[in-house]
Design a binder for these strands. Structure first.
Lengths: 241, 241
DNA sequence: CAGTGGTCTAGACCACGGT
DNA sequence: CCGTGGTCTAGACCACTGG
């Protein structure tokens, strides 16, 4: 079960193994885990390493601990509920919809004042302006405008946008996406939305604005999207403190 | 700085101390921390304990680590950006608005089928149904309907609702609120919204539905709220992975 | 009382980054 | 090469829970 010669860390192997026993329903919600000392003994790894595995699963919502009593399986594993920062593509896949893409606009130009400030750019710096129609099961669902600094993402092409931008950023450029601040509000459709999303005047849309940052805090992307309210709900899992 | 006789854990004391040096701007974004071995040496605590403090601050967004290089201060400390699960009262205070409350309805009755399932209740179990108008700076901002199991929150009264429900649950009943699943969508106002929120027909509202759970996974609360779209944006900070 | 998780130590070896 | 964070060990004592 645990392979000491594997290049994978022991705590990670144990973490995956416990996750499996939960997902295969060998362990049901409310069940208690073997104690840390028992796990340490039976897998022949130190208790601190066992604790590291368990702590990670507690942080992901699989387990919870009670002092003096033990460690137990949670009812809700809130990781899979589309928590975390996702791209449109990842989001649609999690909803079991087929994501689609139609590039409407791709341009490189100097950032104006507002965008320059929000992306923390110097004078004369160039940005990509990208406008895309987003589809789910071939139906228009959102109209999205993004701004990214050229400096951070050299060599971005329409072809890459056909695939996944986040994959390119993470796997090709080896940048670590950290977190995003997102505002969600309700609004009425504007003329551009009506044209592309094929909806009628007077219908509400979800207006989502996102600022994404790398792990070191550098601003990466500004996105403003209008989602058809009849087709899309924004769903999020939030932790207390 | 670090008091070995304090009842507070050493890792927590170090965590608070580093947080202070960041918040007082002794350490600026991008600055590197002393290495783990240096911190361990200068405070006379073991490296593992130093790591526990640093790991917590990384998880809260204050710091980030780079292998082979060091640990650095983030640009964005995303904790304060109203991340985390908050009550309406906490939310409004964070926005520097004065929260207000008007109880419209308070009732105890047997749960119907849908609510019974979502709150994981048995037959014949009683729930509170609470309808409140929420105010910010004395202006109506949201209409909120909540359902809670009587079994979990015995002795709930309108007076407690005047104060803070979450404070009562956490400080009086000693229940640990864990997390919530929230959906946000755009809709047009219905007749009840129009009456209480004093808005016109055809105006969009943000419809927010929340299911709150205790740490052990027990469902605590269902809430459905309509927020005036012209007065309220939903803001959230999301982490990658 | 025995068993649990919470905290802590003083080492160790590794892979990585930069010189 | 040396210094960094990443992983891991084999102990220890504490506070809390339950019988």
């Amino acid at each position: 079960m645990i392979d000491k010669n594997s290049p994978l860390p022991l705590y990670y192997q144990l973490e995956e193994h416990i996750k499996q026993t939960i997902e295969s329903e060998e362990l049901m919600p409310g069940d208690s885990l073997p104690s840390e000392r028992e796990l340490s003994e039976s897998y022949q790894i130190s208790r601190m390493t066992v604790r590291q595995a368990i702590t990670n699963l507690v942080n992901k919502g699989y387990l919870f601990r009670e002092k003096g009593k033990g460690t137990f399986v949670s009812n809700q594993k809130f990781e899979q509920n589309l928590q975390g920062l996702t791209s449109f593509t990842e989001d649609m896949k999690a909803r079991k919809l087929v994501p689609g893409n139609k590039l409407l606009h791709f341009e490189i130009f100097p950032a104006d004042q507002d965008i320059k400030e929000r992306l923390d750019l110097g004078e004369e710096e160039l940005i990509y302006k990208i406008k895309r129609l987003r589809l789910a099961n071939e139906e228009p669902i959102a109209l999205e405008t993004s701004y990214l600094p050229v400096k951070l993402i050299p060599g971005l092409t329409p072809e890459i946008l056909e695939e996944s931008l986040y994959t390119y950023i993470e796997d090709e450029l080896h940048l670590n996406i950290g977190h995003a601040t997102q505002t969600v509000e309700a609004a009425l459709v504007n003329d551009e939305d009506i044209k592309h999303l094929k909806i009628k005047k007077g219908v509400p849309v979800l207006l989502i604005q996102r600022e994404t940052f790398l792990e070191n805090g550098t601003p990466l992307e500004l996105v403003r999207s209008s989602y058809r309210a009849d087709k899309y709900k924004f769903k999020i899992d939030i932790e207390r403190k």
